[in-house]
């Protein structure tokens, strides 16, 4: 899985090079035309110093963020990190205890705000006995200037199942219908909460291209996902939440570059203490007889390893995927905040 990610990240990003130009780190005076500059400086949603508790649990702790016009912002984090709480606050379903929230210059959840937003939430079932077409036409009527019906069908990839009852849709088809309902109103701001859950790889790819098209038209998108490849491919900016705080944010490239380590994994019966004594190794994890080593000097580490023992099999060396960066940054944040150190960790 990781290896697969690696290939994708490194090489094939068809159609994305032009989009990268518009991300914040590459604005050069001569290059970007003025109207795009104006749009990028527009803030479509802002959260300032927002906190939220559930009982004693801190779901969000003084979080601030701005969503700029036309950007795709991915919110990542483990379960319970505060992603859903943040989205719900932006949608006006939860109130912020502290701080201010504004969407399109209005309060979240107001009718005039909702008319300019679209949302794809995690829905376990939808009314069985309406067809795909009836669902979409109903949702279109809620908006002032919806996208043309045929365009919605096209973007969501629903041509062949327009007249099917939602009862008879597969999990992936339901997701596509929910995506259609989210975009059909031609929203300025689109919320996508785990949009590709239950989709096969083909459906996921076409969802990604639909998201790219909307973004090109100037739609701002807030995306939460568990698929880091998805965040990597789609986002202008990634924000990582953990325990209610933002622990990292930046472009996917920036976040990956913050991770200087390579990962070496192999199976071996060598005791962990022997590995801990090697100078080129930053961190060792052992599960059964499967070792995972982090190092910023992979060549040296491998040399030391082979000098020490021959008992090494299933050896792989992998570099920084967003997923690794995520796990690592998340872990270093946790160790920092809890001030507890893993026994297998060695300061270099």
């Amino acid at each position: 899985m990781n290896n697969l990610n690696m290939d994708k990240v490194g090489t094939e990003r068809p159609g994305w090079s032009d989009l990268q130009l518009s991300s914040a780190n590459s604005i050069k005076p001569g290059e970007s035309n003025q109207s795009i500059d104006v749009r990028e400086n527009q803030i479509v949603a802002s959260v300032v110093d927002v906190s939220k508790h559930y009982g004693k649990n801190k779901a969000l702790d003084k979080v601030s963020l701005n969503v700029h016009c036309g950007e795709v912002l991915s919110v990542l984090g483990p379960n319970g990190a505060g992603k859903t709480t943040l989205i719900n606050i932006l949608l006006g379903r939860l109130s912020a205890e502290h701080g201010t929230v504004s969407v399109m210059g209005n309060l979240p959840g107001e009718l005039r705000t909702k008319r300019r937003c679209g949302a794809m939430l995690q829905v376990s079932g939808l009314p069985d006995m309406l067809t795909v077409k009836e669902h979409i036409e109903l949702f279109q009527s809620y908006y002032v200037s919806p996208i043309a019906y045929t365009k919605v069908i096209d973007l969501a990839g629903l041509e062949e199942i327009q007249n099917r009852y939602s009862k008879n849709l597969s999990g992936g088809q339901k997701q596509r219908l929910l995506f259609a309902l989210a975009i059909c109103g031609n929203p300025d701001l689109l919320f996508l909460d785990e949009p590709s859950v239950g989709m096969d790889i083909t459906a996921r790819k076409s969802l990604w291209s639909a998201i790219a098209q909307l973004k090109n038209q100037g739609t701002s998108i807030i995306l939460t996902t568990h698929y880091l490849e998805e965040a990597d491919q789609l986002s202008d900016r990634v924000m990582m939440l953990n325990k209610g705080s933002i622990i990292q944010q930046g472009t996917p490239e920036e976040i990956k570059s913050r991770m200087r380590f390579k990962k070496i994994s192999f199976t071996s019966e060598v005791p962990i203490q022997k590995l801990l004594s090697l100078s080129a190794i930053e961190r060792v994890e052992l599960a059964g007889n499967l070792y995972e080593i982090q190092t910023d000097k992979p060549v040296k580490a491998l040399k030391q390893l082979f000098e020490m023992t021959d008992d090494i099999s299933n050896l792989t060396v992998t570099g920084a995927a967003l997923e690794d960066a995520f796990i690592q940054l998340n872990r270093s944040h946790e160790t920092k905040s809890e001030e507890s150190s893993d026994t297998s960790e060695v300061a270099n």
Binding site: L111, G125, L181, G185
Partner: peptide, 17 residues
């Protein structure tokens, strides 16, 4: 039932009056 499915919430965040 629609609340249990999350469908009611979707309608709620949509601009349906």
């Amino acid at each position: 039932i629609e609340r249990g499915q999350g469908w009611f919430e979707l309608k709620e965040v949509s601009p349906m009056p």
